[in-house]
């Protein structure tokens, strides 16, 4: 099924028998259970005649410290999936679990950058206060809190806009505020829903590298939904390809590119083009 796989540990689509044992010895290390585990997850909106099955029998895992990208056609149910993972929507059947614990409400170790970034910022708070809002109840020392905010705003290139209101900023800047808010929160698991959709190409490259850097610095586990296949290949350790409808996993493709990735050299590798073609043909293939 998964012919191009170079990593033997990758579990192909639909294999529900993937246990901690079967992953042992892979790149992820010894016997660590998957950080994030989605098992036979289904989600149906509404009930009775209006019932709409958006996700059916979805299974995949994300290991600690991995970057995994989810690609799939528009409207397939990617946002719905993330809402189930974040504990915002209950699964109709199946489970999503962190370290083996089933997710029932928003998990403390997780942050989510919403697709609808402009509506996810508080218009009555300045950029700085928006970033600070989730930190207040963490009871950090003031100095550390301020330092986290400054670092996060600098990382997304918005230090100069700290005292402006979100509605005074462009769409791309608002999106970066939402990312800064998640970064300052320092989650162990960071989930982002098309986070770089409305920024310019240059900023996009910078944010992609930022994403890889925070994985290195903080050992974050990162799950990203994206429409951009190049981006998925560049960022990921693995790419989960979703097909419609209802959403199910078409394939999980291991991306075997050398470690410190670099926008120019990595993207010009022949392997990069190969992996890209693999993902693309999986998406184009009639389901």
């Amino acid at each position: 099924m998964n012919t191009t796989d170079t990593n033997p540990a990758l579990n192909p689509a639909g294999t529900t028998d993937m246990t901690a044992d079967s992953t042992s010895g892979n790149a992820g290390g010894a016997t660590a259970p998957p950080r994030l585990e989605v098992t036979a997850l289904s989600k149906t909106y509404g009930s009775g005649a209006n019932a709409k099955c958006v996700i059916e029998d979805l299974t995949f895992t994300v290991n600690t410290g991995e970057v995994v990208c989810i690609v799939g056609p528009s409207g397939v149910g990617k946002t719905t999936l993330l809402k189930c993972l974040a504990g915002l929507q209950p699964a109709t059947s199946g489970t999503a679990a962190i370290d083996g614990r089933t997710i029932a409400g928003p998990p403390p170790e997780m942050a989510l950058v919403f697709q609808d970034y402009s509506r996810s910022l508080m218009p009555w708070l300045t950029v700085r206060k928006n970033v600070r809002l989730p930190l207040r109840h963490l009871h950090l020392p003031t100095q550390e809190m301020n330092q986290r905010i400054d670092t996060a705003l600098e990382a997304v290139g918005l230090a100069h806009a700290a005292n402006q209101y979100p509605w005074q900023l462009s769409g791309g800047m608002q999106q970066r505020v939402a990312i800064a808010r998640a970064l300052a929160y320092r989650p162990e698991i960071l989930i982002m829903d098309e986070p770089f959709a409305s920024v310019d190409a240059q900023t996009r490259f910078e944010l992609e590298d930022l994403c890889l850097k925070i994985r290195e610095d903080f050992g974050m586990t990162i799950l990203v939904v994206t429409h951009d296949i190049d981006e998925a290949v560049y960022l990921s350790d693995r790419v989960v390809v979703l097909g419609s409808k209802p959403a199910r996993v078409l394939d999980v493709i291991g991306i075997d590119l050398p470690a410190p990735r670099d926008q120019i050299s990595t993207r010009s590798l022949p392997e990069f083009a190969e992996q890209r073609t693999t993902v693309l043909s999986m998406i184009r293939k009639p389901a």
């Binding site: 809402k83 915002l88 409400g105 928003p106 996810s120 508080m122 809002l133």
Partner: peptide, 20 residues
């Protein structure tokens, strides 16, 4: 969306009422 954000970042009840 703002309710979702408050939930994800686990704002306390007081924070939700007064800040959101």
């Amino acid at each position: 969306s703002l309710k979702d954000v408050s939930a994800v970042y686990r704002l306390t009840r007081t924070e939700k009422l007064a800040q959101v």
